[in-house]
């Protein structure tokens, strides 16, 4: 049997993906049983070439899965900074939150991805947005003992203070 368009996106199989999409552009944003689109699968597995291709084909980066999971959060939890920046360039909301209050910044912190945290902060990620359990990005960095992430957040706050 053939792989689904979601599996092809996750595996970065551009050639098969192209032929799959020729059958019908309606497949471009087709959600799987949990509401994840091919773009979400590609972002979740770091397949930037597929992400670029799907975006060029008109895939919607704003779509949310059933628990409001976003493509941006899926890239952030894995620390795929290049994909995060590409999505932000396509105008997705840096502060999109999901059912448990997760934001891309909280997920980047949770994954201990310093570069991704810095990129999100530079693009206006809101440091005051807390998960539903009340953890702010800084709380989370401290609770998880991620010193470099904590430093990145502190440096960002200092920069904000100096600019005002």
């Amino acid at each position: 049997d053939t792989l689904s368009i979601h599996q092809l996106a996750a595996q970065g199989d551009l050639v098969q993906l192209m032929s799959h999409l020729q059958q019908g552009s309606s497949l471009l944003n087709v959600p799987d049983d949990r509401g994840f689109t091919p773009l979400m699968w590609a972002a979740a597995f770091g397949e930037i070439a597929v992400v670029k291709f799907l975006l060029q084909m008109g895939a919607d980066p704003h779509t949310l899965a059933k628990e409001r999971e976003s493509t941006l959060s899926l890239a952030s939890i894995q620390g795929y900074t290049d994909i995060v920046l590409l999505l932000l360039d396509h105008g997705v909301d840096v502060n999109i939150y999901d059912w448990n209050g997760g934001t891309p910044l909280l997920y980047a912190v949770h994954g201990n991805h310093v570069k991704c945290v810095e990129a999100l902060l530079a693009k206006g990620a809101d440091l005051t947005m807390e998960a539903d359990s009340g953890y702010s990005p800084m709380d989370l960095a401290v609770a998880l003992g991620f010193k470099k992430v904590q430093q990145a957040i502190e440096n960002h706050v200092l920069k904000l203070l100096q600019n005002n």
Binding site: Y107, S133, G134, Y135
Partner: peptide
């Protein structure tokens, strides 16, 4: 060929295992 399937993407529960604030 044996099709290797990727598991569905997911997001962790951010506060799992952390003390209540």
């Amino acid at each position: 060929s044996q099709l290797s399937l990727y598991t569905s993407p997911s997001l962790p529960n951010i506060s799992l295992g952390l003390p209540a604030t």
